[in-house]
């Protein structure tokens, strides 16, 4: 297993319950990748830029960001917009994982260049399955050029 396979899965989620279920699901998926949970958009950018309380972390590009939309301080769409405006993060895989099936949210996400938009299923089995599928796909199956 090389270094690239062990890239972090960054989970941006303000709901601790959702985060716990997602982390459970990923753990059950037996993925080797570390899972990092941050609670809003500001923390997400702090983590990416290794600043604030993440200033000392080791350099690491996440395999995928699982991004909630509705969050305090800075919501998911703002994060997405910020990332897509920076050369460094332009091609970073971002998956929106949201309860919103509002047409406006979908349209804005895709216009901002999201890689996937997944609706959080209410059914717990489906939720687990969805998160595990995402983790497996982005952390294991998906290939990216070196140096990114």
């Amino acid at each position: 297993m090389n270094k690239r396979d062990l890239r972090t899965i960054l989970l941006v989620e303000d709901s601790l319950a959702d985060a716990e279920m997602a982390i459970d699901a990923l753990r059950e998926a037996k993925l080797a990748n570390p899972v990092v949970h941050v609670e809003d958009g500001v923390e997400c950018l702090d983590w990416l830029h290794r600043r604030g309380r993440f200033a000392g972390r080791a350099e690491d590009e996440p395999a995928v960001i699982l991004l909630d939309i509705k969050m305090p301080r800075m919501d998911g769409l703002e994060v997405l917009q910020e990332l897509r405006s920076e050369e460094k993060w332009k091609r970073l895989p971002v998956v929106i994982l949201s309860s919103s099936r509002e047409e406006s949210d979908l349209a804005r996400s895709w216009n901002l260049g999201v890689n996937a938009y997944v609706l959080k299923p209410v059914d717990v089995d489906q939720f687990f399955k969805a998160v595990q599928t995402l983790g497996h796909f982005w952390a294991v199956l998906n290939q990216r050029p070196d140096g990114e």
Partner: peptide
Amino acid sequence: YSVSHDLRAPLRHISGFAT
């Protein structure tokens, strides 16, 4: 919007944590 977004999350949690 709030219903769409916020009301579903607790439901998911209820069934999720019951499981």
